[in-house]
Write a protein that binds this DNA or RNA. Structure first.
Lengths: 337, 337
DNA sequence: GAGTTCTGTGTAAACGTTTACGTAAATAAA
DNA sequence: TTTATTTACGTAAACGTTTACACAGAACTC
């Protein structure tokens, strides 16, 4: 198909394939003059090495796989941005796989990746994932970011979720809230548990008593925006005394806004809202949304760097290489006293 | 490395490698009994075929490359979603490359892809791209979506940009605007030219005279949000009579909101705004933004389908396979009379 | 029963690289 | 001069698949 290969170059230059290959890799076993001849013809014929032959022989593909729940969440879009940047700098390619928060898809994707198509994996586990068997039998290096898998001994890149949960809740309390709801995506994710613990500790530290009914745990099988809106509406109707909402994920904050409008609850007069979000346009919201903003780009880039270093040095990834980055609380009108 | 391969299976089953290979492909040349034995051992040992050996031999990688300007634009995130879905259904993998709107990166990426790493390419050209030489020498099938390359004879998946430009402008006029600005990303993209023509024709059809000074053409080298804000501010200060803004891209609509706030122009009382956007949260904006919403998911999926069909049948892609999908104008408060 | 087709399997050659090993000539060391 | 080392290249064997071809034996045809 693609007719210009090492053989073709070798024939035209009256050299062996081996010499041509070595010349293109700038091997010291080739004379400068020959190298020059080879390079000249290679560029003249627009030679590009066959990635698959090379990968097969070297047993490494210069490719990493990114397995994430969705790309329409701005957090993940920014993370991909950081990943792609780190990969490009290291000469690596990026394969992308979306789980859509579904356990089955995640298993199927990981199964495919076992074939050695990628040298390493960056992953944020699906909200529907509870069993981690598919990840434990994985022989390929993996780094988790944001949504980690505690069962696997590897490096994780996360944010200070406990502190963020504490900070967000304390912020609401200081703004005058007394009955604060916590909306989360899935209670099976460690990330959610950490935020929940921060939320609980902040309540207690400020002399408020946590109520189980105020935490909306999310369904294991993510039921999408419609289901989320329904569950939030039900919660706000059941507990009309709620005066503060802490949303653990962007979508839930948006859904909460919609429900508040529908039920005629004014933000921030009746209900104050703070939510995790990476949307730049929250400042244009009515009212502007107070956010916990994660350094999504840096998370992606750091995770990729750790993975790429390990792949390049062929060293295992140690849990001690884990990185925790700080999120930032950006105060806006939705939590004004 | 990955020790379980065809050889291993063949040895354990006392068969030849060829038979094992054929059995796994469900070839009619293998007896049902043997097939069953092979399949049983393959699953027992968790065998996964080596993708690179297979790709090398078959000369096709079951992989497509997606080359886009950025993934943080919600339009592209949704498009990737559609692409990934179509690819997954066809058993294809998706490599992702970001140009960051830069011509040099685009050239470098395309150069890499010439090595046969992918069977096909889906692409939306960078705003910085004016020379198309790198695309013309490409031997791999490519389908453009949204931002096409008119020089290349292939299928394109676009939206009705001219009509959208006309419709958006007419909508502003009907809402009472008389001096309408058009903000676009890059005047070198065909997509921008089409929208601009729709804008101009709508003005004339409604008895208004277009003024060149009202079109903000964008810089070839995309100067990012800060530069955009500066140019929009300069325009609104130079022309205080502007009472309508048509933004050809999401970011510009957001920037326009910020500038209007900064300059104290009320939306929609002083200035009405309509913008291309795929953000779900525009309905939470203050005021909610009237949008032209492109069917981004469908665009990605359609483009991928066309490409994948061509790759699978090994047929060339014809311009006649192009698809034009309709965008939708969603009226919200930012253009209320 | 001789010839023909079909069935199931094995042999071996590809695909395009990389690389261990071999080797002639050139240079250095003795 | 002889021997050791270096330099610059070639030979050939991998990497794990797929597949054209060969070939037994079984099942048909006449």
């Amino acid at each position: 198909m693609q007719s210009v290969n090492l053989k073709r170059l070798a024939e035209e230059l009256h050299l062996s394939i081996a010499t041509v290959s070595r010349a293109l890799q700038d091997s010291h076993e080739v004379s400068p003059a020959t190298k020059e001849r080879v390079r000249a013809l290679a560029t003249a014929l627009d030679y590009q090495p066959n990635a698959y032959a090379s990968s097969l022989r070297r047993n490494q593909s210069k490719t990493i796989g990114v397995v994430i729940p969705k790309v329409t969440n701005h957090f993940f879009a920014l993370a991909i941005n950081g990943i792609e940047e780190a990969a490009r700098q290291a000469g690596f390619h990026v394969l992308i796989y979306l789980t859509h928060e579904e356990y089955e898809r995640e298993v199927s994707i990981i199964q495919h990746l076992k074939g050695g198509r990628v040298d390493g994996i960056l992953m944020s586990v699906a909200s529907g994932t509870e069993n981690t068997e598919h990840l434990r039998s994985l022989r390929i290096p993996v780094v988790f970011f944001d949504r980690i898998c505690p069962d696997i001994s590897t490096a994780n890149v996360t944010t200070n979720d406990y502190e963020s949960g504490y900070q967000a809740t304390a912020h609401l309390i200081e703004a005058g809230c007394r009955t604060i709801a916590h909306l989360l995506l899935s209670s099976s994710l460690s990330i959610g548990r950490n935020r929940q613990q921060g939320y609980l500790d902040a309540l207690v530290a400020h002399g408020l008593t946590p109520s189980p009914g105020l935490t909306l745990p999310g369904t294991p099988a993510n039921d999408g925006p419609a289901g989320q809106v329904g569950r939030i509406r039900e919660l706000l109707q059941r507990r009309p005394d709620i005066d503060g909402i802490f949303a653990s994920v962007e979508r839930l904050a948006v859904s909460a806004y919609h429900v508040c409008r529908e039920l005629g609850r004014r933000i921030p007069e009746d209900v104050k809202i703070v939510g995790f979000s990476n949307l730049e346009s929250v400042s244009l919201f009515d009212p502007p949304l107070t956010t916990i903003t994660q350094p999504a780009y840096d998370i992606g880039r750091e995770a990729a760097k750790i993975l790429l270093r390990a792949v390049e040095k062929k060293r295992p990834i140690l849990p001690t290489q884990s990185v925790v980055l700080a999120s930032e609380l950006v105060q806006r009108r939705s939590t004004m006293p």
